[in-house]
């Protein structure tokens, strides 16, 4: 064992630097990579809603011809993949830490699942009362609204302002997109939602690298 280990650091400034660096290293070691969530989800929204916009544009415009089931299936697949990826990454990053956070994380993950299960099994009732365009908008609006709400709740649980802010932003763009109407809603969500998440992930990543 090195003799250096037993000595105090050379002076108060050095000591504080050591403490802060080690704390930051521990936090980095425990927390998932910022792109781990924002990458898959940002991409899923950007592409999934982007393709939706291209096929089901405003006022029935079709920017890119394709079968009408394709955008929905694509969106669903991308979202499912993002959900699996983020679930696996979340589980892995806090592996070997036991205690309260594990319970919080598990309950939070379960909350997402049950919330969307609930949405999936209740909204269908209203499909027949709406036009095709409005049906699509209803599902998208509710799904995005649910997502924003869960982000805000997550921010509150972990006192994470970034996550809370993302939730507020998500609700805001959902309101704007829905007000403008179907067709535009997809574009708003794709760019201001998916694009924003990708940018946010990159910014957070740059910040953690700058801190080293």
């Amino acid at each position: 064992m090195s003799n250096l280990d037993e000595h105090p650091p050379a002076g108060p400034a050095e000591t504080l630097r050591l403490i802060e660096e080690q704390r930051a290293a521990a936090i980095r070691g425990l927390a998932p990579h910022p792109m781990a969530f924002f990458g898959p989800w940002g991409l899923a929204w950007l592409l999934g809603f982007g393709v939706m916009f291209l096929r089901f544009g405003p006022d029935g415009r079709v920017f890119l011809p394709m079968p009408d089931w394709l955008p929905v299936v694509l969106l669903f697949v991308l979202l499912a993949a993002a959900a699996v990826a983020s679930g696996v990454i979340a589980g892995r990053s806090y592996r070997h830490v036991y205690g309260r956070s594990a319970v919080q994380g598990a309950m939070y993950g379960l909350a997402w699942f049950i919330a969307f299960l609930g949405m999936g099994t209740t909204l269908g009732r209203f499909d027949s009362a709406l036009s095709d365009a409005d049906t699509g908008l209803l599902w998208a609006t509710v799904a995005i609204g649910l997502t924003g709400s869960l982000h805000m709740a997550g921010g509150a649980i972990w006192r994470d302002r970034t996550l809370f802010g993302l939730g507020v932003w998500t609700i805001a763009i959902n309101i704007v997109g829905t007000a403008i109407g179907s067709g535009w809603h997809s574009l708003v969500i794709s760019l201001a939602g998916g694009g924003a998440m990708l940018v946010l992930g990159l910014v957070l990543w740059a910040r953690t690298r700058a801190a080293t």
Partner: peptide, 11 residues
């Protein structure tokens, strides 16, 4: 310093 980064109640 590393242990201080854990949430209260975590091990």
């Amino acid at each position: 310093a590393s242990l201080s980064a854990l949430d209260e109640g975590d091990r």
